[in-house]
Design a protein around this nucleic acid. Structure first.
Lengths: 342, 342
DNA sequence: GCCAAGTATGTTAGCGTTAACGGTTGTAGG
DNA sequence: CCTACAACCGTTAACGCTAACATACTTGGC
């Protein structure tokens, strides 16, 4: 089962044209369903192409036509679960537009983002969907000069380059703080990621603190982590924090996964949730639906974000604008079973 | 913040060459670090390129050089967690080879796989990494004719096209059956996915049944699901099955996520795990490390698979073979806390 | 001072496809 | 029978870049 030894010359339109006795141009027309071709020749050509196993060369096609049916989608991570979700909604929405998403991953590094962007732009995609509004100056310049639609997603807190679709993480944090205070919790701890480049987590924390401040409350304790399994980290951090600050009555987690870890720890240790201790996360991970106690969370509109972004790129946006659209979506709070009802 | 209105003509090598007073060829050499260029001109050219914000056109470059630094990676799903893991190990391994992975997703559909493959091959990648050994005849033909290295990953049970890297899911199932029987369990249920196209899950079940048969045992009950949150489904299915067959003493799940759901249900319902009831999943999801009880599972060597596949494509495989390599890895059983020790 | 052997740059000819236009039929209408 | 206009198919010239070769300048050895 090894590759064919006879390294045949790769097939071109010419091969198909010779095999079917028509010009290359006609073959090209048939294969792209463009222009007038009689049914007889069409059939002949398709036959020949199939028999030879011809696969068109999009590189040459793109160069000649100056059109590329690719959309660059640049995200920080694939293991976060949030991004695959966005990605699949982009993918679905692009399904029958002739456009195709191509993914690049930055690992939350601005430098990597710059490299990935450079690499992707060098393939001259028809549009770019990129997570976040924070980019290096070089990245911003590239996006501005590319002459293609750019949609920055997830986050609307900041200055966009072209179009923006997302939620305000600052306000999401603020609303969560308000809800927690309204439920009567007062000694509140925050547990989150250490990653300085996760601007959205940072903004949520800032908004959260702001919400607490409005009620004259300060964060009682904080704990940060980096790397490792989020569920396990949530467990560990929760234990650490409650050992250190046993009088806390609420824990706000920067994401659902560590929140779930914390929740499991609380349940294992017989802590009365939500009465003695309230918990909340962020993101509405459907993955966690199977827990016996539903963690309070905030849905980040991931599917909607992907959909809208794809619509803007494919030019099917409702608004009919040419660019510079800013769409702010409203995350909704799901109190689950871990915030007490008053 | 809208796109520049003046739709400038896109930049080419010529623009950079004019701006820096050298030939296009020299600019090309500088930008690719190839051939002899004096430090003075190199500096001049880089300056000009940066000032203009020039991004090379890889489409033209690829056409001219007949080389494309892309590797097609075709996987069934991104929401499965298994595949992002493989993907990132491919990515890491390719890091400094000059090659770049490009992902295609098939949603477990052979037809979609065929389309994705056609699309990707039309960009003439340097290699293909594709999940599974089951493909449509057309897909097989395309892969055979492409004249590039092909690595089928995850699964070695079947006839490969070129190289294959994976584990035997059949034997993985068989070994699990042996371990379960050795631990003294006798009334065994299976809970899995309904997807007929998930050949690896199917093979595990077949191997599992075979292992049981050797000990003269038959599966006591089975339950299948499709769609929805795996954790929740695991919970539901477990309840359903134990209501129906209360005398079971072991549940084998086709993946860790539904296994975890089942485990949580058992814990919530005060079932004595692992003494009265044993549980096992498949995959070694690090995601689940934070559970209070560790689910028995089998590590599928995902990182290793990605690494080896990437090595074969980049021609850095240990073996020095040209093609047709078959690498079978050995999954290891992790008994966790849900199989009783004898 | 002349040639050999670099070193640094330019020139030419594609790569495989498609846009744009040109030609050749056939067919209907006057 | 001639014109008008489709319908069909071919020819030519790009698209932006790079491989391969060609050319101009050095430098050093005798």
């Amino acid at each position: 089962m090894s590759r064919p030894i006879e390294t045949r010359r790769p097939l071109t339109l010419r091969d198909v044209s010779e095999a079917s006795g028509v010009s290359e141009m006609t073959v090209s027309r048939v294969l792209r369903n463009r222009g007038d071709v009689s049914d007889a020749t069409r059939e002949k050509v398709l036959q020949a192409a199939k028999a030879l196993g011809y696969v068109p060369n999009k590189i040459a096609g793109a160069l000649a036509s100056q059109r590329v049916n690719l959309v660059a989608v640049i995200i920080p991570s694939l293991s976060n679960l949030v991004f695959p979700k966005v990605l699949s909604s982009v993918s679905d929405e692009l399904e029958d537009t002739g456009l195709q998403p191509v993914v690049g991953v930055t690992n939350y590094s601005p430098e990597k983002e710059e490299q990935v962007l450079y690499e992707m732009l060098s393939w001259r995609p028809s549009g770019v969907i990129i997570a976040g509004v924070e980019h290096t100056p070089a990245s911003r310049a590239m996006l501005q000069n590319a002459g293609i639609p750019v949609v920055e997603i997830m986050d609307v807190d900041g200055e966009g380059i072209d179009s923006v679709v997302g939620i305000s993480h600052r306000r999401a944090g603020l609303h969560m703080a308000e809800a927690i205070i309204a439920a009567g919790y007062r000694k509140i701890g925050f547990l989150g990621t250490k990653m300085p480049e996760d601007h959205r987590a940072r903004k949520r924390l800032e908004g959260f603190k702001e919400g607490l401040a409005k009620a004259g409350i300060e964060l009682a304790d904080t704990e940060f982590y980096a790397g490792g399994s989020a569920l396990a980290k949530g467990r560990e951090m929760t234990e650490t924090m409650l050992k250190r600050s046993p009088d806390l009555d609420f824990l706000y987690y920067s994401n659902d996964m560590i929140g779930a870890g914390g929740l499991l720890w609380c349940l294992d240790n017989g802590i009365d949730v939500p009465n003695k201790m309230g918990l909340a996360g962020f993101n509405g991970l459907e993955l966690l639906d199977g827990l016996s106690v539903r963690l309070a969370t905030m849905n980040a509109c991931r599917a909607e974000i992907g959909r809208k972004a794809a619509q803007i790129i494919s030019g099917r946006s409702q608004s009919g604008m040419i660019g510079g659209e800013v769409i702010e979506l409203e995350p909704t709070l799901d109190p689950g079973d871990t915030i007490r009802k008053r």
